[in-house]
Nucleic acid binder design. Structure first.
Lengths: 255, 255
DNA sequence: CGTCATGTTGAGCGTCATCAACAGGAGTGG
DNA sequence: CCACTCCTGTTGATGACGCTCAACATGACG
């Protein structure tokens, strides 16, 4: 594996590499983006519903999530974002936020102005297409979440989410393998998992217990071990095609 | 209102006009697209999950929907598409369909090759941005659907969908006003409404009856009358911001 | 060692699914 | 015009899944 230059934007390059083939020129163009690195506390709103951001950020480290507030005050999480994601790129073209973007963990982010992103996209139409593709894949994920919410049982919903997040973490090199079992970080409390799956926190708790009792997973101290990956995928009806991940070039080697 | 040239693509121009300001040059560029007009029967699959389409279509007349099949065979409708929509533009950048696109009614569509769309986007980056914006708004709608599925009751879900579809139909001039009450076509059977809302057909039926009993709407013979628009919006917690529709220029005059 | 967030358990109840039967309406062919 | 069929809508009965409320346990952190 060619050692990439050390650049704070490497997580972005890695992520984009999972959905498109980047040329060395692309990488250099991206590395040249004028960014400011910022560290954000957990539970910090990056942009709120109704805001008109003038900046965009790329997540370099940590997790974030999007949520919407329903009329009765219930909060629904509609997406998770991982290192390399560009979660508010959309504010370039849809100025008013339709949802709130919040850090889940402590997050290191690369912040840049809309202006500089516009210039990048104008200069590199090829990269604009890559980002558009990213938008489209995210839409596909959102569609899958609709299916998750509406047709699957509590256990299935949770299992499906875990499968999806594992797949995504794996693709960016953030999942490990311990004794042949996938292990990955899970900074999601049961209350947040409830807001994600449309279940009550109590029922999430009980469903998790069943998943544990069936020997499918271990989950404690903010880490998940998939004890029985195939079993989880079967239970969840998980088929990863909708993520449109490219077959890994070097992922297998990297670990 | 300036009478636009008669062009089969007028529905597209009208739709794009609801989300962005188009110049006369933009319109001419779009009108020049090399298209073939086709008529499709109801319930015809335009593209299926797993397909790799080589063409795109724009809906000129009629409704279509996107759906996904869950593991147990349940079908979930994840979006509706109306005249002017470009429902499979995404296949340009995400070649494999993650869902199935089907006509709901008889549909008149403008079909074009990927190649000609690519040329258009390369030639007119401004229009590419408009289509990207369209993609992003559709993603916002999909997020709102997640909220709909997971936090709202049966009645609220149905009411919310009706509010959304009314808003969209209105924006493209396909909703009428009869005695001060909004009236719009509704080619969606209760069974399909069930597949859309994640409810059983039986429960959809009962929920509709309650909505009728509360004097909120009339629904029969494939037409909806909103008898009490504010009541519906209040019940559904409907706030149309997520649709990012521009304030109508000429819509008010058009009717 | 105290405090607060997170996780866990029990009991009762409501929304919605399921199954089954039937009614109405549209279209078709005789 | 009627008879037939099929699709769509409607109704009743029963039960499951998941919600709510309330209390308590555990763990992290200062």
């Amino acid at each position: 594996m060619e050692a990439g230059e050390a650049s704070p934007l490497n997580p972005l390059l890695r992520k984009l590499g999972t959905i498109a083939a980047l040329t060395e020129e692309d990488r250099n163009t991206l590395r040249a983006l004028p960014i400011t690195i910022r560290t954000l506390q957990p539970d910090h709103d990056i942009a709120r519903e109704g805001d008109r951001p003038t900046q965009c950020c790329i997540i370099l480290e940590g997790w974030a999530f999007r949520s919407k507030l329903a009329g009765d005050g219930t909060r629904q999480i509609v997406a998770f974002h991982l290192p390399g994601d560009f979660p508010d790129l959309q504010s370039l073209y849809v100025p008013v936020m339709d949802h709130t973007l919040t850090t889940l963990t402590s997050v290191t982010a690369a912040v840049m102005t809309h202006q500089s992103v516009r210039e990048l996209l104008a200069r590199a139409p090829h990269l604009a297409a890559v980002f558009w593709r990213d938008t489209l894949i995210e839409a596909a994920v959102t569609r899958e979440w609709i299916v998750n919410m509406s047709v699957r049982s509590a256990k299935e919903r949770i299992a499906h989410l875990l499968c999806e997040m594992h797949e995504r973490l794996q693709s960016i090199g953030l999942a490990q393998n311990v004794g042949g079992k996938p292990v990955f970080p899970w900074p999601v409390t049961q209350a947040r998992l409830a807001e994600t799956t449309g279940l009550s926190a109590v029922h999430v708790n009980r469903s998790l217990q069943e998943l544990r009792a069936e020997g499918l997973l271990r989950l404690s101290h903010k880490w998940v071990t998939m004890l029985n990956g195939p079993g989880m995928r079967a239970l969840a009806g998980f088929k990863p095609d909708y993520l449109s991940l490219r077959p890994a070039d070097d992922e297998s080697v990297a670990a």
